[in-house]
């Protein structure tokens, strides 16, 4: 068996947690419990988990506006996340960040980022710190097919090559930048060919296949850890929901989402594979399903009961270390 049972169970639990967290976010949003607007990543779980499962808390990731999955995969507490998304004072960022700004420095999560393309230059910094301090830690940025067209990302990729930074650029190509198709917005024929043009190894994988994604990322993270510089991995995937919760998705074809949920569900593909290979038993995964549902239920109940921030004390704090 090429994978340890424990590894497979962890991978499944993490993906399932993301799925249920996101589906529940939609419900809670629709129920009026989530202020603002929220972007969910259901459908893309395999990439987040494949990218983060081997990383330590000292390895740094930078995420996107669609960042809940990355947070969970990197080990952020789902209770703290749900509280944050609901704007409670005991949330991961005291309710000051919200869905698009969840960060957990202790877990090596440098932050979701509501500016498309905002993250990769910062992740270069984490990689530069690792290189300068000689820690052997690495950094990994999540990007989308949308941020792939931002100048900040071009600059970050070039600088990562020039300074040979331990930075893995992951592109989750879910086919849409908000409501504009990737095959319109990407002027190049292949993002991976473009990525290679920056002077780094670049590969394209099926992001609905956890194992294919994991294997490509393993090589990329090892390169980074060995001081061999950056790599770009484009993972083709499907977004099960809209750009934001409530997006009517008028830009998508008839039955597009329905068919994707049926045929391109990375969780289902994972389950089918591990059962067919005889690596895991359905009963083990069913047991995880139940535990995850309990965890999410508790996260929501705790969040709904959690205190709100107090403007008298919380509005003005945390702007500066000293002022």
């Amino acid at each position: 068996m090429p994978y340890q049972t424990d590894f497979l169970l962890r991978a499944y639990r993490s993906m399932k947690t993301i799925r249920e967290f996101e589906e529940r976010c939609v419900k809670e949003f629709e129920g009026g419990n989530v202020p603002g607007f929220t972007h969910v990543s259901n459908g893309q779980e395999a990439i987040a988990v494949a990218a983060c499962i081997d990383l330590s808390d000292k390895d740094i990731i930078g995420s996107t506006h669609r960042g809940h999955g990355h947070c969970i995969a990197k080990g952020c507490d789902v209770g703290g996340m749900m509280k944050e998304i609901m704007g409670r004072s005991t949330g991961l960022c005291k309710g000051k960040g919200g869905s698009m700004h969840i960060a957990d420095i202790d877990k090596g999560m440098l932050g979701a980022n509501a500016i498309v393309g905002g993250g990769p230059p910062l992740v270069n910094g984490a990689a530069l710190a690792a290189k300068t301090l000689g820690t052997k830690n690495i950094a990994l940025s999540f990007n989308g097919d949308g941020s792939a067209n931002q100048g900040t990302v071009f600059e970050a990729m070039n600088l990562a090559v020039v300074l040979k930074l331990p930075h893995v650029f992951v592109y989750e190509n879910n086919g849409y930048a908000e409501g504009t198709a990737a095959n319109y917005g990407l002027g190049c024929e292949s993002l991976t060919v473009r990525n290679a043009g920056f002077g780094m190894p670049a590969e394209c994988v099926d992001g609905t296949d956890f194992f294919a994604t994991y294997e490509a990322l393993k090589i990329a993270t090892e390169r980074a850890r060995n001081g061999e510089g950056p790599t770009a991995i484009e993972a083709m995937c499907v977004r099960f929901d809209g750009h934001f919760i409530g997006d009517p998705q008028l830009y998508r074809g008839k039955d597009e989402v329905k068919l994707a949920r049926k045929n391109q569900d990375c969780l289902k593909i994972f389950r089918d594979r591990v059962i067919a290979e005889g690596w895991l038993k359905a009963a083990d995964m069913n047991a995880i399903d139940k535990e995850v549902m309990v965890d999410i239920e508790k996260a929501v109940a705790d969040a709904l009961a959690a205190p709100h921030p107090d403007p008298a004390t919380d509005l003005m704090s945390d702007v500066y270390c000293t002022y």
């Binding site: 740094i60 910062l122 530069l128 300068t132 950094a139 900040t152 600059e155 070039n158 600088l159 020039v162």
Partner: peptide, 28 residues
Amino acid sequence: RGRVIDTPISEAAIIGAAAGAANNGLRP
């Protein structure tokens, strides 16, 4: 050159690298 780093002409990348590094143990 490891501590006095000449960069390409990429101001966003310069500031980003400094900010990310500052959150990870350096004083850029």
